[in-house]
Amino acid sequence: MTSLYEEVTQVPDGVPTRRVTITVNGQKRTVDVEPRLLLAHLIRQGLKLTGTHTGCDTTNCGACTVLFDGRPIKSCTMLAVQADGHKVETVEGMGTASELHPIQEGFKEEHGLQCGFCTPGMMLAAKALLEKNPNPTEDEVRWALSGNLCRCTGYQNIVKAVLWAADKMRDQQA
């Protein structure tokens, strides 16, 4: 088995790696990583799940947001080794091109994106919100997304998209 970090930055001989098993989008993945590898880079370079974006790389922008045991985290600010034995969900786990998740549908319906860079992080933060609070107010949506930056939309349509999704998901539950 080749080390993932080797693919990422060519680990020289003798640098210790650790074997970790992470459930990513419902699938168990076992990989060898160098302890300093960041989860965001394992997901992108190692697992080739490039829907998770790295924006600022300084814990500000939230583009790298994934769900870690169901809660949103900034994957640029967690070591990949820390995810050993845990569940990670990325945007690839939300829906498929033919069958969108209601949140993805909401972003489409309400034009919740322009360049799309922040969108995966926004959607996962929204998913975490709606799981805890299926009927949020506009204010609650804005607070829940306040750790995710968007430089295109001015947030208006993102908020509308999340409220649209909340409606749809409540309808599906009913």
Binding site: T59, G62, T65, F68, R71, P72, I73, K74, T77, M78, A125, W143, A144, L145, S146, G147, N148
Partner: peptide, 8 residues
């Protein structure tokens, strides 16, 4: 911080 940082 922000709500995502607060989860960790």
């Amino acid at each position: 911080a922000d709500p995502i940082v607060r989860t960790r």
